[in-house]
Amino acid sequence: MSSEFLPHSVNPDPHDMPPVEDKKRRDFLILATTAVGGVGAASFMWPFINSFNPAADTKAGATVDIDISQVHIGQAITVMWRGKPLFVRRRTPVEIKEAQAVDINSLRDPQSDQVRVKKPEWLVVVGVCTHLGCVPIGQKTTENRGKYGGYFCPCHGSTYDTSGRIRLGPAPTNLVVPPYTFLNDKTLRIGQDKA
């Protein structure tokens, strides 16, 4: 069809290549141009791909300051943080003692209470069950807190203790402790480790 139009002199014929010197120079230029072009193409794609990463305003919303001055002992509040519920519970002395008394080796996800709280009175955990993502109940004293007085996930029965550690049920790990810090006695900042 169209190949009948190709003059043989212009068809690339491997047997009459130009002298080796020329060939080397030509190949280098082709290689260099291809490399430069490749770099350009990759650089061109980067802004597009990077646009999918969290935007500046999303990252700015990544910390939330909570006023905890009105939370009494034994009370808990739920706050939205990064689109998920966050449990802040002011534990009673009984709850603290129970959390600290547990034998760590008996836990599915061994963690002492001390490493999970900055101030023993305040439990701060992300309220998302580590099994399949439901929101456990137990923030209110009237709700079912499960066998260990912590949280109970109604979806598949995962039971957490007063330190938010998994004790019964299918969840593999303890409730996540987010980065947080006490700005002062009244304010809790979630999303940042240090003030």
Binding site: L29, A32, T33, V36, G37, G40, S43
Partner: peptide, 8 residues
Amino acid sequence: YLIVFSAM
């Protein structure tokens, strides 16, 4: 970059 690339 584009000047260099176009020149090549």
